[in-house]
Design a protein around this nucleic acid. Structure first.
Lengths: 129, 129
DNA sequence: TAATGTGTGCTTATCAATATATACAGGAGC
DNA sequence: GCTCCTGTATATATTGATAAGCACACATTA
């Protein structure tokens, strides 16, 4: 199974953290179902063009959070998915991004109106794709 | 002069990078004017509760970009401000944030309508402050 | 059932980037 | 001169990222 993770080369956010955040999101939102066998660390590393160690760290961190279960010689599986706070989690993710957008806009002195216009315009462009 | 830089402790973005990005933005957008004497590295470091070295790195990087000029014993000044691409720069900053918001929304399966509603709601809340 | 092949994850050794504390050195002003 | 402000250099710890090889699990097959 292929896991849709996007690496942003130019970001200052550490590689392992980008992968970890996105994979966690995929699991918690249910886009990668409970019981799923994830790609092996080698396969995933080759896919993302990074080191095996980096993937291992991601799997290990998420295992410590209780989202994954790893067995040597076998692979890494998705375990628990708490569907209760799934919607809440999703909203948090988006709200976080909205807040950082507002910060950015304020930092360069964009008014709420200008910002709203820019968001609307971008949304329209996206829909046309 | 006090420089309004906000450190996000919980972010994975390196400290020096957070400071650098925000200070660059303040200079390029003209919120910190050409000729301004910035706080000394010690003063700034104390303000942000970080190491002197970290501030020095920021000043040095921005000096290499041509935005600052440093003289030992005297301090660090804002030099050039290219007002030509100021508006363009501002828009880029905001657009970048809009894009990452769209990414976040898509990654958790938020529809454009839901997203727009959330943005509007947040903007309204902000205005009431 | 023992041997082996090929897939897993794991360990070690290493390097680069980030961040720090502490001590050094130059300029301004009394 | 001295003193007190600047930035600068050195040495060190911590974290992020890598390569190469070790160890376990399981299926195949002699």
């Amino acid at each position: 199974m292929r896991i849709p993770v996007q690496i942003n080369e130019s970001s200052a956010e550490p590689l392992y953290h980008q992968i970890e955040t996105q994979l966690r999101s995929l699991i918690v939102t249910g886009q990668v179902a409970e019981g799923t066998l994830l790609p092996s660390i080698r396969e995933f590393a080759a896919d993302l063009k990074c080191s095996v160690i980096t993937i291992r760290r991601v799997y290990q961190d998420l295992e410590n959070e209780g989202l994954l279960r790893t067995r040597q010689g076998t692979g890494t599986f998705v375990t628990r998915v708490d569907t209760d706070d799934r919607e809440e989690y999703k909203k948090q993710i988006v709200l976080e991004a909205v807040r950082s957008l507002l910060d950015a806009a304020r930092s360069v002195g964009y008014s709420p109106e200008e910002l709203k216009a820019l968001v609307d315009e971008t949304l329209r462009k996206e829909e046309r794709k």
